[in-house]
């Protein structure tokens, strides 16, 4: 019983740290998005609140908290409030299995750098959670009692279901390579420069495209296509409920970047520097360096997400569906077949 309480305490502390980290990340990414888009479009971007406008996201959150929360008269109040909670909860829950570095050894106790990075099901948990994420958006679209919201919600659900398949297939070839379902195992299999982006370029492209669609980011941001749908599923939301959707979008982006770094960019692996530094396994220094390497990769992926959004125009809906079902899905199957054959005979 004592052991269980101890475990609960450790998991609780880890969860608090990671959730605060994700919140902070989301705030930082909002700032980055605005700054980078400003640079791309030859503007200055936020520069009034704090040095270089760094406090802008906090000012925004404060504003959202103080705003009036308007619920449409014919909306379903309960589900209208439940939808942003589900969306944000699912976005955070993915971080439960993401390892940020290998492990820390204090005395006899091994502390893993994640809430539960070593559960057996590993990556399947991420797939399951993204499929739950559909509900927040569908619920928001339906409960608002607004045709634009409903269409946005439907589009988003259809898009997420379609791209989940391609995503799953791309991951299967990665799992074939690593022979391990846990994310830590997948990272360990990419030691040195055996990163999956080099060994599985096709899977990388499929996965990257699908994560753009899964996070509803441009060029696949059809659920919130302003010219057609006003604002999509969140049209009828205001105040912090809108803020929660907004936060969830960036938390999802953070999760997608973290997962891409772990699956394809080798996680905290980097050629030569660990041999050069020579820190012992489980030491604090090693964990810090691993953390830095991982966060750098994650930040690069976030930059890539933002860069793409401000460079590429939006797809049309039929193009989106054609790409998902007729190109990415067969390519994913082909990739599994080829990977299987190669692994069998080598």
């Amino acid at each position: 019983m004592n052991e269980i309480l101890w475990l609960l305490l450790i998991f609780g502390i880890k969860a608090i740290i990671i959730i605060s980290f994700v919140m902070l990340c989301a705030a930082a990414f909002v700032y980055l998005e605005r700054k980078i888009s400003a640079v791309i479009q030859n503007r200055i971007g936020p520069n009034r609140v704090g040095p270089f406008g760094l406090l802008q996201p906090f000012a925004d959150v404060l504003k959202l908290f103080l705003k009036e929360d308007i619920v449409p008269k014919n909306a379903n109040r309960f589900y209208h409030s439940l939808a942003p909670i589900i969306t944000l909860g699912v976005a955070f829950s993915v971080f439960a299995i993401i390892p940020f570095a290998s492990y820390l050894k204090i005395g006899d106790r091994v502390i893993h750098m994640g809430i539960a990075p070593n559960i057996n099901i590993g990556f399947l948990f991420v797939l399951a959670m993204t499929s739950v994420g559909v509900y927040g958006i569908t619920l928001a679209g339906w409960s608002s009692n607004n045709k634009y919201s409903l269409l946005g919600g439907l589009r988003s659900a259809a898009q997420m279901i379609s791209y989940e398949l391609a995503m799953g297939l791309a991951v299967i070839s990665i799992l074939l390579m690593s022979q391990d379902l846990t994310l830590t195992g997948i990272v360990e299999a990419q030691k040195g420069l055996k990163w999956n982006i080099f060994l599985q370029p096709l899977a990388f492209i499929i996965f990257l495209t699908s994560s753009f669609a899964e996070t509803n980011r441009s060029p696949f941001d059809l659920p919130e296509a302003e010219p057609e749908l006003v604002g999509g599923y969140n049209t009828e939301y205001s105040g912090m409920k809108f803020g929660m959707f907004f936060l969830a979008e960036y938390a999802n982006m953070a999760a997608a970047s973290a997962i891409i770094s772990l699956l394809f960019l080798g996680g905290w692996n980097f050629p030569f520097i660990y041999e050069w530094l020579g820190f012992a396994n489980g030491s604090v220094e090693l964990v810090l360096v691993q953390l830095l390497v991982f966060l750098a990769k994650m930040l690069f992926m976030v930059f890539f997400f933002i860069w793409t959004r401000w460079s590429i125009p939006r797809f049309r809906y039929d193009q989106l569906m054609n790409l998902g079902w007729k190109i990415l899905l067969p390519l994913g199957l082909l990739n599994i077949l080829v990977t299987g054959i190669i692994l069998m005979y080598i």
């Binding site: 099901i121 399947l124 797939l127 399951a128 739950v132 509900y135 279901i161």
Partner: peptide, 12 residues
């Protein structure tokens, strides 16, 4: 594994 399959197939 069954739990995750439950989520993926029934819910997803």
């Amino acid at each position: 594994f069954i739990a995750v399959t439950q989520l993926m197939i029934y819910i997803g």
